[in-house]
Design a binder for these strands. Structure first.
Lengths: 230, 230
DNA sequence: ACAAAAGTGTTAGAATTACACCCATGG
DNA sequence: CCATGGGTGTAATTCTAACACTTTTGT
């Protein structure tokens, strides 16, 4: 009994982090996957991640893994859920703290070239994934869709300067439906979280006004309970 | 280098679960706290919880701790967040998967009598808590308030049979503001998730119609994206 | 000149809010 | 009879959704 108690207090598990990294590309929302170089699931596609070291917090570990495995730094990162079914990892007892990250189009370019073993997949055509990573990816997508409707996470997928057309297309792509251009612009205008720049941009057609996101104003809205209306 | 790699792969952390248990009592929303019987923070109030054993999932561990420390079983339990700052526990590296639970008035009665070292505190008058438990409790309250507005978690705080007055008071208590009785009833009616019973109840005044929550109908609403309008 | 995206108001319908009185019961 | 909570409708306002044409640029 004493021994058992002693053992229980010292019960130690291994803990990993795994991150679902989203970006937008031509054909919609994509997720970054890496090929596993070691057993188990050697050669399978998996979410980038790794073990949490005893000197770092899980979010530090996620950021480190993002840098090493995916070549991205300073991106939007949010904890998703902790998966801990006893049999989820054939190596033994491994619990994973899952995160999701959003990288903008320009950040995603760096990513692709960094790791040869990493590759972007459309969210609606993921390959077979190692461990329970498919469940994690599905859950992350659900969370992203939900959060898009009442927060400003969408801006994380755009470069610092963007047009209203680009912003609208972020929403349409992730939500999977068209939104009315005039209604969309009116609502954004009303929120007052965009600052117009002295600059125009756009690749085809008439050059569009460029904006930047004004997080400061958004914080005030949040405090008043005014949320995103999409 | 080899040694270091070996060590890193085996890096093992201790993992606990901690649960913020909410209930409604006369003077509003309360949280169940227990007095710590061992070091560190011996004698301090803390959230009920314990170490995750290597054979169980974190949610199993949370349920077990709920039974042992608080005397409750079969309650609503939802994962909140995983806290893992390296210095959050003076014993060394301990990560905690935090949960929150909702217990109805009748379930809460059993709870009080079970553990002498457990006691309910109003959410707006918590004592000093061990570890980072204050942060966890604050976060749980925020999450509960948010979820109340777009899910049916509120029903978890009521007994199986309840009156519309009781339901309204759940919303008013947690949201901290009064809501219009007629508008409230109309919206609930519109959702169609309550089934009236052949029974009346209530403690004072005119006896009220009793209802039960019909989860089946709610699931259909969720699928259509129709959410709670409070 | 045409293809491509930018930009811009109005109106009908739906949803939300505000508001006050009578009813049934227990003590 | 009075205290307590139950039960009910309507009108004003706000929000949401539907809808089409002109402008600016590159090719």
């Amino acid at each position: 009994m004493y021994l058992r108690h002693y053992w229980r207090r010292r019960a130690a598990l291994r803990v990993t982090v795994d991150t679902v990294i989203f970006t937008l590309r031509e054909r919609g929302l994509h997720v970054l996957l890496v090929r596993r170089s070691g057993e188990p699931f050697k050669g399978s596609w998996a979410l980038p991640g790794g073990f949490v070291r005893s000197s770092e917090s899980p979010s530090d570990a996620a950021e480190r893994a993002l840098g090493v495995e995916a070549g991205v730094r300073g991106v939007y990162l949010e904890q998703l859920y902790t998966f801990g079914e006893p049999k989820r990892d054939p190596r033994g007892r491994v619990l994973t703290v899952a995160y999701y990250a959003l990288v903008s189009v320009d950040q995603a370019l760096a990513t692709g070239s960094h790791a040869a073993a990493a590759s972007w997949f459309p969210v609606d055509a993921l390959p077979q994934l190692a461990f329970d990573h498919r469940m994690i990816a599905d859950y992350a997508l659900e969370r992203l869709r939900n959060k898009l409707e009442y927060t400003t996470v969408g801006f994380q997928l755009l470069p610092a300067k963007f047009t209203l057309g680009q912003l609208q297309s972020v929403y349409e792509t992730i939500l999977g439906r068209a939104v009315d251009k005039r209604n969309f612009r009116r609502k954004i205008e009303l929120l007052g979280i965009l600052t117009p720049l002295e600059e125009r941009g756009g690749e085809r057609g008439r050059p569009a006004q460029l904006y930047r996101f004004s997080a400061r104003r958004f914080e005030k809205l949040k405090d008043k309970g005014i949320l995103f209306p999409f």
